[in-house]
Design a protein around this nucleic acid. Structure first.
Length: 221
DNA sequence: TGCCAGGCCGGGT
DNA sequence: ACCCGGCATGGC
């Protein structure tokens, strides 16, 4: 068994299943993926609630909403002008795809690598956002790498020096069975671990469930 | 109080 | 090909 599989089992045993984005709809997942860029999820929830309360959580509603009104709704998630534009870019792209393929589900049924390149071509959609959409909305077998993933791999000596996003992604995907549900949980567990034990100078770092495997006290540094 | 959160882009070396 | 500033709110 690969080291990364063992670490996964331990994280799962400690934190339990996280069940990220369990079925609130593809549009909500897509919107959340953009809004959570470098932003606390709690702030994103407020923004999504604003949209949901006004029945704006659909591609057509979002596409027809003026920039200022969208920005106002998503204000709590931060970078609201920037994200309003990025959401617009993505929504317009998806509306075009729905027009061509008939539905979001049909569009997402395409080949993974094709979808990924298309998403990355939308301004404001980078690797992590694209992969989050692919994994959590399209349910593709793709591992989502984030800031925690690098610290995790680095701290456990699984990457020598700074690696690219794609290199770290390959590391996980080569070590694990190709399983979207597994990738989903693993990513969520890493975020969970990071939130609790990866804060800089966190005095609770010795309570980290993986502390036994670590050479020093705090694996965040 | 200051620091940070589930990044990405554009301009400068 | 990297490095860096900008983007912005809410929570601890």
């Amino acid at each position: 068994m690969h080291r990364l599989q063992d670490l996964y089992e331990r994280l799962l045993a400690h934190f339990g299943p996280q069940h990220w984005w369990p079925g609130d709809g593809m549009v909500e997942i897509v919107v959340g993926a953009v809004l959570t860029q470098n932003t606390n999820w709690r702030n994103v929830e407020k923004a999504i609630a604003n949209l949901k309360n006004d029945a704006l959580l659909s591609l057509t509603a979002l596409a027809g909403l003026p920039h200022a009104e969208l920005a106002e709704r998503i204000r709590p998630s931060g970078y609201y002008n920037l994200k309003a534009q990025r959401l617009k870019n993505l929504v317009h792209f998806l509306v075009d795809q729905v027009a061509e393929y008939g539905s979001l589900t049909s569009f997402f049924a395409q080949d993974l690598s094709v979808l990924r390149l298309q998403l990355l071509s939308v301004k404001g959609i980078g690797p992590e956002t694209a992969d989050s959409i692919l994994l959590y909305a399209a349910e593709k077998q793709i591992f989502v790498v984030d800031a925690y993933s690098y610290r995790f791999l680095s701290r456990h000596g699984l990457v020598a020096s700074e690696s690219s996003y794609e290199e770290m992604q390959e590391l996980f995907m080569d070590a694990l069975p190709a399983d979207a549900a597994l990738y989903n949980e693993y990513h969520a567990l890493l975020v969970c671990l990071g939130k609790e034990f990866c804060r800089k100078r966190n005095p609770r770092c010795r309570e980290c469930p993986l502390q036994d495997d670590l050479p020093t006290d705090c694996w965040s540094e």
